[in-house]
Amino acid sequence: MHSIAGGLRSVITRQPAFTAAAAELTPAELIPAEALRQLNRRSDRAGWRQLAGHGALILASGLIWADGRLPWALRLPALLLLGWGLAFAFCALHECGHRTAFASRRLNDAVAWWAGVLSFYNADFYRRYHQWHHRHTHQPGLDPELEDPPPSSRWGYLLELSGLPWWAGKLRGHAAGLMGNFSDCPYIPAEAAPALRRSIRLQFAVYGLLLLLSLPGGNGVLLWLWLLPLALGQPLLRFVLLAEHGGCSTSTDVLRNTRTTHTLAPLRWLMWNMPFHVEHHLLASIPFHALPAAHGWIAGRLEHNDPGYLAVHRSFLAEPSQLALPAPPA
């Protein structure tokens, strides 16, 4: 019996040639039903394999960075890898937040919550926030990702990549969440607020426990093994996230308002295949491990199917104003 992967390969080789007339097709019409059914299959095995690799990166780099007997030439690269592993735990949170990384809903939710602890997001809040983002992708005034306007100058661009606006926003958001104040969040219904407040308080209890455990030995584990590396990892995460919708149309057409970016395999792996972002937005039910196959079906229809992050950001640097949102109507 042919494997699922082999079946997909045989189907994808027969993909249709998309033309302008296909613009009105629905996602289900872009990908035939049988191929879509296979693409939508969730796999605990694929999820565990990805999670184990990501966890191993964090653990191995953390052990090397923490070992003061090792030379700095080894420890500093390990510190950077640890930072990337922690920052890009956001990608694990994102996939599990969609409850597609694993077949088990409970496992998806558990992994998402702990990935949020590592990346300084709250999974329960983010799930509702992100659902709204998918509903109103890149729509000014509706998409919560646009609550803080994107940069429109080189200085603003560099500030965005530093991660400083992200830290400020996270501290404000978590502080409001700890108080149960979600008045500025239309995607949070009143009945969900108590559960979200409990989740955020539990997350900060974990941070508090780690802080208390580090005090007797004076080792500053929360600073040296989490805050510092996470801060160092943020610029690369901001770099790739800015490309997802930056400079794209503010229309409601996912094929135009979202970007797929081709990149090196190690970064694609670290991102849980998030560079295939149009594919993800077009059909969020497709698990991360099937997104490359989904790309084969829709590649010819993408307005933004870019050759790499450096090329995308060269364009941003050449014309930062393209990141700015259109002025609201008078």
Rank of each mutant, 00 (worst) to 15 (best):
Q203M: 09
P235M: 10
L228N: 02
W166A: 10
F182D: 12
P140W: 12
N181E: 12
G169W: 10
H138L: 14
E160Y: 15
N219E: 12
Y126P: 00
N219Q: 08
R128I: 09
Q139D: 14
L222S: 04
H174N: 09
Y129G: 06
I188K: 01
P150A: 05
D143M: 07
L209M: 09
N181P: 00
H130L: 03
I188G: 03
G208W: 02
R238L: 04
R135E: 15
L242V: 10
E160P: 00
Y207A: 01
F204P: 00
A231E: 03
Q234M: 15
Y187D: 13
P186N: 13
R172L: 13
F239D: 06
C185T: 12
R127F: 01
L241S: 06
F239H: 09
L212K: 02
V206K: 01
E160D: 13
Y207Q: 03
L222A: 10
P165G: 04
L164S: 04
L230N: 07
K170V: 14
G246S: 07
I200Q: 08
Q234D: 00
L227H: 05
H138E: 12
W167T: 08
L215M: 11
L171A: 15
G218Y: 06
R128Y: 06
Q234Y: 11
E191T: 13
G247Q: 05
P149M: 10
L225A: 07
R172A: 12
W166I: 08
P150T: 12
L210V: 14
Y187R: 01
Q131D: 13
S183M: 08
G247P: 07
L255Q: 02
W224G: 03
L242I: 10
F182P: 05
H174V: 12
L196V: 11
L142Q: 14
